[in-house]
Design a binder for these strands. Structure first.
Length: 921
RNA sequence: AGGCGCGUAGCUCAGUGGUAGAGCACUUCCUUGACAUGGAAGUGGUCGGUGGUUCGAUCCCACUCGCGCCUACCA
């Protein structure tokens, strides 16, 4: 084996073998375990958040596969209606074409072409991450069978009256020319103005003042509202004002919605262009006057001179005219939330159009109950609150989009305005007895992408067919995703699953934190702080990284800042860390926190961990070049100890995984591997294997323990670090007598061979204490590790003597001793540095080694520390309430502690005195 | 406005009603036959603040300060 672990060489080769052998597909008839991948957007690439979630999903998948479950991790992508259409339209634009020039059919061909060409990016990334998904079952939301499921669900919901078509206000994107759902609206505060307009009373007796942030909409006003309790205006209710510019007479109405304390207390009502006004309009039977076209220019319902103007130009003209008429009371600066489309960034308009909606309340109720009853469990559970909060205030879902790319709405219209919904035009004709001569036209619109995503857990398994996969894997075991799509996706899957697949789509919802950059900022293209997970795996130089971050920016003016920040944060670019180091980092970072700052330093630490493991294996294969053989073996205390420690670690990893505490699992593995196996056990086998006097049986015991423990450790690490464990396992498994072609299909380790052994653990604890005490003296006295030390033991108990007899070799080797001897009772000790292990005193003679002054300083420091601790303990024991009320065992422990501290202090004091007197003499 | 979360070592974060932990960084020593992507020893924290419950609070409760996120119709 090479001296340094080199991930680049092995990862691709290993993955190709796994995939080529078909090992990712579910096997056997055992208990099913299934995870549905949250389908990434087919236009996109995997970002750090994906890599994070994929690591956790893969760890769970590999863990369950090794436990023998029939394990399916289902991959796929969604068609991302708007995003994909935008990408292809931009491509056309470069050719000087628009989508209308091609027509619907050719345009869709172009989209499929584009998908064939660039849709592979994500799957390439997934392969590099080691994702053990069943590629043979990869799905795309626009696949024929998934589309079939979409149609089926639409038709059934329609037939039940849970889908309806209606003309109402929607969030309209005047750039993309489509409706959006509430969730696709991003509202942020921006600077604007509050214009106070004077509306003259129709009878000529003065005016009212209304305040508005969007003065151009006044052309569509159909009322002015006041609060019914507002004494200032009560006498005006029922009268009317003359709407300036438009010249219409509109009523003054009373509605409790109006806040008398805000502005003038009068509100202009524009039912066709404001969601609140729409509702007020409904309540009062007001006319709805739509003044905008689809592109947000003014239409024929406004006075001639305003027609055709863009909305913002219209605003300037309206304001100017009102000012010149003396109808502008005042203009104030004002911050207000401005709704923008999440894709286009355009300011959205509430606009009256015909759209399709899902009536959501009847679906929401059972979905709420599923979480309340525990049929679905959120982890961490506090996310259930967020879910409830949204579900209880949910509104009908606008599912139609004015796009070409997506699932076309299965509705047909005849010439008389009748609408027919069905699985196909043929079905519609048959069911409604429509003659072939009756012309039918299919609805032009497509469905929201999330509509098909909501069906993902069962559409990918073949629904509506009652397939074997559906029966076996539904409901799935766990959904792993980020909190940002609880509403978009999680809630909708629950609703649809309960409605159509006879039950919840998953048992657990594990909500991961959000990966942020080193400064806690959300990673985004526009901020220029994204990192491609593959660049951590393969490394990237600074210039390439800068180029990557600044190319294709929506706002090119941000580039200089991005360049600067990137050069500051990654002056050397990013080194190659390999997949396993990145994955282990993600696991270690997977705490219950909802924000996770990504720290490259951590990846470096775990890259080192990979190297540590690699070198441990290198050592093992050097020590055990061939199988140790089945002849009788004897196990040393170290052998028994490491086996017992392995069992504890294994149990810790298992319970951590049950609780989705990947951070605990990672810590348990890390600490066992580094601090127990490498720091202690590998050192402990050296004196055995390198000692000619040691028995063959003892050596065989050590060799077996080495290979068996390492082999089992590799299996335990495999879900987190699949590549390095496979590479090493191929060499080590035969030595440990374990057959099998791959670690990924090897059984998860069990207790056999790793029995608990508290005797070995306490003996090892004693050995470690002695070694540490000597090392402490060595370290604090700056004695070279190369220098062998003589060690004398004083005040040894019978147990100490007994242990010493059994473990002397270990002590000599690990503490770097030249000699080790127990002082006889009454035998005087030479001038020494002292270490204490319980009552046992460790003496390192100072002659020629240790400066008395240094030892005095060391002892004094230790004494001060111990006295401080004793002081605290005494205070506690001096408190009558503590002694009287605390549990007896707590008090007893405190007393024992005090006694031990006192003893330590006495020893230290005596020693200090001795060294001092000698130094003086 | 409502909801949720966070504040622990220089940095990034675990954690527990009973002696505060890790990684990185830092200091000193060491190239000893697995590993310098290493080994050994060490420095470093009034656990945001105040009050309460308790024998005992970093942990539970109340208030408070600071920060963040999500929902929402104040024109």
């Amino acid at each position: 084996m090479d001296k340094v672990y080199a991930p680049q060489e092995i990862e691709r080769r290993i993955y190709e073998r796994w995939e080529g052998r078909g090992w990712f597909a579910p096997q056997g008839s055992a208990a099913p375990f299934c995870i549905m991948i949250p389908p990434p957007n087919v236009t996109g690439t995997l970002h750090m958040g994906h890599a994070f979630q994929h690591t956790l999903m893969d760890a769970l998948t590999r863990y369950h596969r090794m436990r023998g479950d029939a394990t399916l991790w289902q991959p796929g992508t969604d068609h991302a209606g708007i995003a994909t259409q935008m990408v292809v339209e931009r491509q056309l634009e470069a050719e000087g074409l628009r989508r209308a020039d091609l027509g619907r059919t050719s345009f869709l061909e172009r989209v499929w072409q584009w998908k064939a060409q660039s849709g592979g990016t994500i799957s390439r990334q997934m392969r590099r991450l080691g994702d053990s998904v069943d590629w043979s079952r990869e799905r795309f939301t626009m696949d024929e069978d998934l589309s079939h499921a979409v149609t089926e669900v639409f038709v059934r919901l329609y037939e039940e009256g849970l889908i309806y078509r209606g003309k109402r206000l929607v969030n309209w994107d005047p750039v993309l020319l489509t409706a959006l759902s509430d969730l696709e609206v991003l509202s942020e505060e921006e600077d604007g103005h509050l214009w106070h307009l004077r509306y003259p009373l129709a009878d000529g007796n003065g005016h009212l003042v209304v305040a508005t942030t969007r003065p151009e909409t006044m052309l569509g006003d159909t009322a002015v509202a006041v609060n019914p309790e507002d004494g200032r205006y009560r006498h005006l209710i029922g009268r009317s004002v003359r709407l300036p510019l438009a010249g219409r007479e509109i009523p003054i109405i009373a509605d409790a919605y109006v806040d008398a304390a805000f502005g003038s207390g009068c509100v202009k009502i524009t039912p066709a262009h404001d969601f609140n006004d729409y509702e007020i309009g409904q309540r009062h039977g007001l006319e709805q006057i739509n003044i905008l076209t689809a592109t947000a220019t003014l239409n024929e319902n406004v006075p001639e001179r305003f027609r055709g103007l863009d909305r913002f130009e219209a605003r300037r003209r309206v304001v100017a005219e009102l000012e010149s008429l003396g109808l502008m009371e005042k203009i104030e600066p004002h911050r207000l939330p401005v709704p923008r489309g999440d894709r286009s960034g355009a300011v959205l308009e509430p606009w009256l159009t015909d759209q399709w909606y899902v009536k959501i309340a009847p679906l929401a109720h059972p979905a709420i109950e599923a979480v309340e009853s525990g049929a679905i469990r959120f982890v961490p559970e506090s996310w259930a609150k967020t879910y409830f909060e949204w579900m209880r205030n949910i509104r009908d879902w606008c599912i139609s989009r004015q796009l070409w790319w997506g699932h076309r709405i299965p509705a047909w219209y005849d010439g008389r305005g009748n609408v027919y919904v069905g699985r196909s035009e043929a079905e519609v004709r048959t069911r409604h007895g429509l003659a072939a001569s009756t012309a039918l036209r299919q609805d032009e619109d497509v469905l929201d992408t999330w509509f098909s995503s909501a069906l993902w857990p069962f559409s990918t398994l073949g629904w509506p067919e009652r397939t074997g996969e559906l029966a076996k894997f539904y409901p799935t075991s766990v959904l792993v995703t980020g909190f940002d799509i609880i509403f978009f996706w999680v809630a909708r899957m629950i609703m649809m699953g309960l409605k159509f697949a006879d039950g919840v789509p998953f048992r657990d919802v594990y909500i991961t934190g959000l990966i942020r950059d080193h400064d806690g900022q959300k990673m985004s293209k526009s901020k220029g702080n994204i990192i491609d997970p593959l660049d951590i795996i393969d490394g990237i130089d600074l210039e390439a990284l800068v180029a990557k971050r600044t190319s294709g920016l929506m706002q090119p003016h941000l580039a200089p800042g991005i360049v600067k920040a990137t050069r500051r944060e990654f002056p050397q670019g990013i080194p190659a860390f390999g997949t396993d180091a990145l994955r282990f980092t993600f696991a270690a970072l997977a705490t219950q926190s909802r924000d996770i700052r990504f720290d490259l330093g951590r990846v470096g630490g775990y890259r080192n961990f990979c190297n540590k493991l690699w070198n441990a294996a290198r050592f093992v294969t050097m020590m055990v070049p061939e199988p140790p053989g089945a002849e009788p073996a004897e196990h040393s205390v170290a052998d028994r100890w490491i086996r017992a420690r392995f069992a504890r670690m294994l149990a810790g990893v298992e319970s951590a995984l049950t609780d989705y505490r990947f951070d605990f699992a990672a810590t348990a593995l890390y600490e066992f591997t580094w601090y127990e196996l490498c720091d202690w056990y590998l050192e402990l086998v050296k004196p055995v294997l390198q000692d000619d006097a040691a028995s063959e049986a003892l050596k065989r015991g050590a060799r077996r323990t080495l290979v068996e423990t390492l082999e089992a450790l590799l299996r335990t690490l495999h879900p987190f670090m699949p590549f390095i464990t496979e590479e090493i396992w191929q060499r080590v498994a035969p030595l440990a007598g374990r057959a099998g072609e791959t670690v990924m299909l090897a059984p998860w380790p069990g207790a056999a061979g790793f029995p608990p052994d508290s005797q070995a653990e306490s003996d090892m604890g004693w050995i470690q204490s002695l070694v540490l005490a000597v090392r402490q003296i060595r370290g604090e006295m700056d004695i070279s590790p190369a220098r062998r030390l003589p060690l004398l033991l004083q005040n040894a108990s019978p147990e100490d003597r007994e242990r010493l007899a059994r473990h002397q070799t270990f002590l000599e080797r690990l503490a770097g001793l030249e000699s080790l001897r127990v002082l006889a009772a009454g035998e005087s000790a030479p001038q020494s540095a002292i270490g204490l292990v319980g009552g046992l005193k460790l003496l390192v003679p100072m002659a020629g080694l240790i400066d008395a002054a240094a030892e005095i300083e060391r002892l004094a420091k230790r004494l001060a520390k111990t006295r401080q601790e004793l002081e605290k303990t005494r205070t506690k024991l001096g408190n009558e309430s503590f002694v009287g009320r605390a549990p007896a065992e707590v008090v007893a422990a405190e007393r024992a502690r005090a006694a031990e501290l006192e003893h330590t202090i006495a020893s230290l004091e005596a020693q200090l005195e001795r060294v001092r007197s000698l130094a003086a003499g």
